[in-house]
């Protein structure tokens, strides 16, 4: 009971801190001159109005197709590499292959540290680093995506592999299976639908990340949206934005089909 009331107390404290932070941030806004300056409001109207004046010229649609293709290519290449990084680290980092508790803890701590490092740096920062190092090449985009996504996938995979019902695994061990074989026959099948579903979700995030990455100058949908905004061609910008939405919807539909096939 004491711990419950303590928890309630710390919750209340947290609430007060958060409310305080909100009040402070609201107070720091310059309300007198209006949040948006007058030109801002008219620009906003112009931009939102442009959604009805989409640029559907052949040239723009051609650019959209190439940009969408490039964005998807970055995402696919980046996520594939992320899978190559994340799956082995996830398997090893879950510690399920180690039967001695000491070894398991050492491996888990070490791999968690590596995974944490990979994903604590945002892909945009990695992109800056790689563009600085190897220039505006597609490789920079792919590496920038693969590293943090590899860290994220590895972390989630390792948790999935740990959290599998014991009874079937015990039965496999009784049949003489080593921990590796228990992994292939017991753990992987148990988590496969969830693993694939989560990887698809991350692929969808990867497409959005690839879009943002292209602002750095790597080409793709984000790059085209940026250029259109610079040209004040809002209709064209919307064409690319809606193209991105369409892309995400397609990936979502694809992932749903694959998952349905696997889960049954």
């Amino acid at each position: 009971m004491a711990s419950v009331s303590k928890l309630m107390e710390s919750r209340r404290l947290l609430m007060i801190i958060l409310l305080g932070a909100l009040a402070w941030s609201l107070a720091s806004v310059e309300w007198k001159d209006g949040v948006l300056h007058t030109r801002g409001i008219s620009a906003l109207g112009e931009i939102s109005g442009a959604i009805f004046k989409l640029d559907l010229s052949g040239e723009t649609l051609g650019k959209l197709l190439i940009a969408a293709w490039r964005t998807v290519a970055y995402a696919v290449a980046g996520l594939s590499l992320a899978l190559v990084i994340g799956l082995p680290l996830g398997i090893v980092g879950s510690g399920v292959l180690n039967s001695s508790a000491n070894k398991r803890r050492t491996v888990q701590t070490l791999v968690r540290f590596i995974l944490g490092f990979l994903r604590s740096i945002h892909e945009l920062v990695w992109a800056w680093l790689f563009v600085a190092a190897i220039g505006l090449s597609p490789l920079a985009a792919v590496l920038a995506l693969a590293i943090p996504y590899g860290g994220i996938l590895g972390r989630i995979y390792s948790e999935l592999f740990q959290d599998v019902p014991e009874a079937p695994l015990r039965a496999l061990r009784n049949a003489g299976a080593s921990e590796w074989r228990v992994f292939w026959y017991g753990r992987l099948p148990a988590v496969l639908p969830e693993l694939i579903g989560y990887t698809f979700y991350r692929f969808e995030c990867g497409i959005r990340s690839a879009t943002v990455l292209s602002f750095v100058g790597l080409g793709g949908l984000g790059y085209q949206i940026g250029i259109s905004l610079d040209d004040l061609a809002y209709g064209r910008a919307w064409t690319f934005i809606l193209g991105l939405v369409g892309l995400i919807v397609l990936v979502e539909a694809w992932s749903a089909t694959v998952r349905r096939k696997i889960i049954l």
Binding site: A167, N174, A175, A177, Y185, G186
Partner: peptide, 26 residues
């Protein structure tokens, strides 16, 4: 030694055939 347990010790996402073949894993 082989073991037959009470229940819930098959791998649910594998086919019956693959579960039987798991007996060969040793």
């Amino acid at each position: 030694v082989g073991v037959v347990a009470q229940q819930y010790d098959l791998v649910p996402n594998l086919s019956a055939l693959q579960n039987v073949l798991a007996g060969r894993l040793g």
